[in-house]
Design a protein around this nucleic acid. Structure first.
Lengths: 198, 198
DNA sequence: GTCTATAGCAAGATAGAC
DNA sequence: GTCTATCTTGCTATAGAC
């Protein structure tokens, strides 16, 4: 478990902390406009402050993106972990995790979507940090796939990558009026289980 | 078939046309830096001209992105269509198409990667145009999945979306020193065919 | 902690010469 | 067709008052 490094100043142990609004606003703007096109002025405005004031919390725009990622990964991890608590059957566990993952991604607000779409391209160190965080999360699926009762030589790695890819791509076609995240998870698992006999 | 609208001025019927270099340069910069962060000056420089000169070919940066998309989709479509020419078995056809798609995406240069990663967020009309083009391409996979010998009530739409998502996501984990695009396509198709019995 | 004010810069796009 | 020169705008980030 990687220690949660603090890239921001959090005065919150006292009252009146605007850090949450700031992160919410940043997540929203990063999602809708993309990291590069979102402006610090707009982010500050939606959080109820002026652009200059944000630099009390964050030293740079990139640090703000890192903080949004960390919060996003924390939320997805929590959601998926909870979903696994009272399920034992390996296939059901996989499906429950996928359902929670899709729920966080598709109906869970801005953070998760930023995690999937907006990896920083500039600072290599920040990028590596976030990839490490994401890998740590995805290790949950590593374990879930390992638990499946498949042949010993089954290509489990490709199965994991296929499922994660299929899930993370859903934001490109998902419509709230169509199938729910739960429906999608069920369909994906069924497709894998039944094979040619579907 | 949507008519290929001309968003750029192409004086090429004569000689000395720098449009190809311009598109190559734009595709390269869009891929490595992202659309928003790429600068017209840098794009022009790699194409051997000054920033102002590009506006002879394109009226705006967004038009340049549209042109790169069109070329990218044309290339992937050609690659996949060729791969299907002399294959008849439905599963083999699917695998051949996936192999060609992955090849274009992972080893095929900058254009295809831009198509997958850089949908314009600003101009809604341009965005719709490009999504329509992509949908038209993906219809190839619609047909391929329809041809598969599956149960009549199989969730073919989810199968198509799962495969396209899994493929397009590979750019996030593919490494040239690992499995080839062809290997990945084979693994994905096997996973679908064999189901629980893998 | 938040403000105002602004430094400092890079971007997209245009005008007109050649 | 390509150039130089430049307009205009918007950005991140900083400084210092309160």
């Amino acid at each position: 478990m990687v220690a949660a490094a603090q890239v921001y100043k959090d005065p919150s142990v006292g009252r009146d902390n605007k850090l949450p609004q700031l992160l919410d606003s940043a997540a929203g703007h990063f999602r809708t406009e993309g990291y590069a096109a979102a402006s610090m002025r707009d982010i500050a405005a939606r959080a109820g402050m002026k652009a200059g004031s944000m630099y009390y919390y964050f030293a740079s725009k990139e640090d703000l993106l890192v903080a949004v990622h960390e919060e996003g990964i924390r939320r997805i991890t929590d959601a998926v972990s909870s979903a696994l608590l009272d399920t034992l059957d390996p296939w059901q566990r996989l499906q429950a995790a996928m359902s929670a993952h899709l729920d966080a991604l598709l109906d869970g607000g801005d953070y998760a979507q930023v995690v999937v779409r907006e990896l920083p391209r500039g600072d290599a160190a920040a990028r590596r940090r976030l990839i490490a965080l994401r890998d740590e999360y995805e290790f949950i699926f590593h374990r879930l796939v390992d638990e499946l009762p498949l042949a010993p030589d089954a290509p489990r790695r490709h199965l994991r990558l296929m499922l994660l890819g299929a899930m993370n791509w859903t934001q490109n076609w998902y419509r709230p009026e169509g199938d729910s995240p739960r429906d999608i998870a069920e369909a994906f698992v069924d497709l894998i289980r039944k094979g040619e006999n579907i």
